[in-house]
Design a protein around this nucleic acid. Sequence first.
DNA 1: GAGGATACTGGAAACGATTTCAACAAAACA
DNA 2: TGTTTTGTTGAAATCGTTTCCAGTATCCTC
Lengths: 332, 332
Amino acid sequence: MAKAAGVSLSSVSRALNGGKNVSAKIARDVSAAASKLGYQPDFMARGLRTRSTGMVGCLVPDIANPLNATIVRAAEARLREAGYMLVVASTANDPGRERSAAGEFRGRRLDGMLVAPGSDANDTTWRELTATGTPVVIVDRDPLDEDPAVLVDHRAGAQAATRYLIGLGHRRIALLTADARMRPSRERIAGFHEAFNELNLDPGGAQLCIQASPMDFAHADTLALLRDAARPTAIIALGTRILAGTLRAARDTGLSVPDDLSVLSVGDTDLAAAHTPAITALRWSLDDVGRAAAELLLQRLRGDVDGPQSRAVLPVDLVLRESCAPPRVTSG
Amino acid sequence: MAKAAGVSLSSVSRALNGGKNVSAKIARDVSAAASKLGYQPDFMARGLRTRSTGMVGCLVPDIANPLNATIVRAAEARLREAGYMLVVASTANDPGRERSAAGEFRGRRLDGMLVAPGSDANDTTWRELTATGTPVVIVDRDPLDEDPAVLVDHRAGAQAATRYLIGLGHRRIALLTADARMRPSRERIAGFHEAFNELNLDPGGAQLCIQASPMDFAHADTLALLRDAARPTAIIALGTRILAGTLRAARDTGLSVPDDLSVLSVGDTDLAAAHTPAITALRWSLDDVGRAAAELLLQRLRGDVDGPQSRAVLPVDLVLRESCAPPRVTSG
DNA sequence: GAGGATACTGGAAACGATTTCAACAAAACA
DNA sequence: TGTTTTGTTGAAATCGTTTCCAGTATCCTC
């Protein structure tokens, strides 16, 4: 390549990297030779010298979950724009796989990481794995110290949803969410309780279910819940497999939505929007989460020690549809 | 590192790569020193020398589509097991982004690629981009030449679905699928027609809609379709946004499923399974697709020029549920 | 026109591994 | 014992870049 352009290696490097001190002639010759040869610099060699890989890793519990996948897509788009490639690892919430993936990322010296750990970031083993000086952005998990993070205001969302159901007259409300070791569920539970507390309502009537992810479990569990004499009149369900299980359970027990049972989805998925009746849902912008995470990471990568902000908190909206109604028999 | 173990660089390399001709003592010393120092070889340096990156790229139209995401997840799991990392690029079916992503992959000299191009592989620009000697596995798209590929038998699936609906008495059936430039849709359309032809039925009664992806378009289009006097009595809809749009359109026009309209989903998603009534669906294993693609690529990567097979064809099953019934008024 | 600042250029030393090759020691064989 | 074979080792070259440094040409200033 250098010979093709008839200049030295150093000049090629300078010309290609848009460095200063390059004469017009050399710049011309180099770019001509480069395009004629279809030359593309070798990332390995460059990375070896500059100690940067041009890649960022993304650790999510489950890439097949549309909630995560949409975030990944948005982040990937922004990062590619900035010249980075995105490496993904889906950890299935398994601490072992999580650790091995993080180790792999570290071994490959990725420039940065977007992480949504299964267990929370407080976890020491996880902690020490991230602590290699690699810039990290936490996505919707509790950050420690000064880690930049993108957070979603699940607490306010859950509070608004609960308030809305209470306003319709519901008193026995079940919250079906995922593993409470993770921030989103914890925040939702808190918001749920706050909504009851602010009205001085007996929280004993509130029912709270916390479950692991598998859809079948959600289904069986919800069946039992709905068959109980003191069944809830409204359910707030996490809008992926748990919502699916809930709707199937309602169908199986012959309860009609919203007449016999109000259903509110946490997260606005295809399922919620297309269901008959359409499911009222809490919605937040997954694209915004992904974009914001990428932006925060890019700030770090550029070395802006303190960019505009190192925490982003995104709002949650309540989208009213047809799946919630006053309970048939007011139980107040 | 070499000094820490008190041996030469070459010996360290040999010991770590499990090469032959390493004495027990040196192997012991090296591994001791390595674990004491937490030494991890530098992938950049190693890659520079061995001309391999230990990474494979994955190009999909939309990673946020659960159908793709599930495939990616399965492939990632298998590839990581084999020591490769997965780089993803979501191209939004935009040829420009597709080209730039492929160029980026090539520039980074990834060891292999899993690709599901938006337009089909026959496309020349796409073709030349993949033709760099990099092992490529085509995923559910028409392969050219001898490219290894993982294919899903959409034709047989669509045929079975159509046959089933015809058997119920339907004659006016609409097939709502995605962009016909892509193999899955093309195959489905072919299977759809074959089902009519094998019974010598007038294909004029069959209705066929082909659409671009946005859900709103599907919705509006389906509304128009359902309001027509000669509306179809059954719809076979692609099970992502198009199915969602179809169900909303049925709700909006007051048609009940399955009494007024039979609906069959192509692809078994949460939406199909949890809807009321549950939607009869064509199902194929996305995990199998991802795993098979990874396996085929690994074969190539290992240099098994001819592994057990370089094409995998996966079956499609019809899952009977409650969304299909005989048409109210037989129109034969 | 001399002197110094300024703009460019190419040679050579990194970066951190793998791999070739020659040297050496120990073992096997005659 | 001398010669070959075998096994093990380290020195040095290499991969393709970036970057430091010294050298040269050009320009400006007095």
